[in-house]
Structures are given as C-alpha cells and as structure tokens.
Amino acid sequence: EFQHNRLLNDYQPSWFHWVYRGKEKIGLVCFKPYDNAYHIHLLIISPQYQDQSLGKKVMSLIHEKAHQEQRNQVTLSSFRNNTRAIRFYQSL
C-alpha cells in the first residue's frame, strides 16, 4: 500500500524506463536525477529473465549515463526485508 501510493503520487513518469531485450519488454527501472547524481528507486527484471546478468547490465548502463552527464554518483534505496535485492546491489 505504501509503495503503491508513493508510485502514484511522488514519482514522475519520466523516471520510468522499460528494460528491453531486443524488442521484448523484460523489466522496468525507475531512476531520477538529483543534485549531481541519479537515484535508483526500482529495478525489476521479469522472473524468466533473472539470473542472466541483465540487472547488472541495466545498472552498468545507468552508471555510464551518469558518467556521460558528469554526475558524481548513483545511489539507490531498497526495503530492508528485500534481501535478494540487497544481495544483488551489494554484489555490484
């Protein structure tokens, strides 16, 4: 409920980007510019495409975009109980 309301009220549509593999939508990422950085709010890869390093590739592309725009950092947030996401981000 909390996350649903936040997505509806606090997030701009321009922050959301489909993740494609070829022409197929396989995930969604939400990141916003702030100060001299990007903040990643959400990264979802469809279950059938997980464990193929696609999330890692998305993160790499966001870092490249930040670098090209001379942003100093990429930050993120995750729910504490989302241990799988936390392990993924820590592995990067």
Score class of each variant (00 low, 15 high):
I40G: 05
L42Y: 12
H39S: 06
K25S: 03
L42R: 04
I45S: 08
S46C: 12
K23H: 12
K32S: 09
D35H: 09
I44E: 09
I44Y: 11
Y34N: 02
Q12R: 14
E24C: 02
K23P: 13
P13A: 13
N36Q: 03
P33N: 07
Q48H: 12
S14F: 14
C30S: 11
R21W: 07
D10Y: 08
H17Q: 05
W18Q: 11
Y11Q: 10
S14D: 15
I44T: 08
Q12C: 11
H39F: 15
G27P: 15
F31K: 02
C30Y: 04
H41K: 02
K23A: 12
I45T: 06
Y34Q: 03
F31M: 04
E24K: 11
N36S: 03
P47G: 10
D35N: 04
Y11C: 08
I26C: 13
I26Y: 09
R21L: 13
S46D: 15
Y49M: 01
R21C: 10
I44M: 07
S46Q: 13
Q12N: 12
A37K: 08
D10E: 11
A37L: 05
I26H: 14
I45R: 09
I44G: 02
L42N: 14
Y49Q: 03
I44S: 06
V19F: 06
N36D: 05
W18F: 13
Q48L: 14
S14E: 15
Y34C: 03
P13R: 13
D10S: 10
K32D: 09
V29Y: 06
I40P: 14
Y11D: 09
I40C: 05
I26M: 11
H39Y: 15
Y20E: 09
P33C: 02
I45Y: 07
H17V: 00
K32R: 14
K32T: 03
I40K: 03
P33L: 00
I44R: 03
H17M: 02
Y34A: 02
K23L: 09
W18R: 05
E24T: 09
R21K: 15
V19G: 09
Y38D: 01
Y34W: 11
H17R: 05
Y11R: 08
Q48I: 07
P13T: 04
V29C: 12
C30K: 05
H41A: 07
K32W: 05
G22C: 10
Q12W: 07
Y20W: 05
L42H: 14
Y20T: 02
E24P: 13
W18V: 01
G22V: 07
V29T: 06
P33V: 00
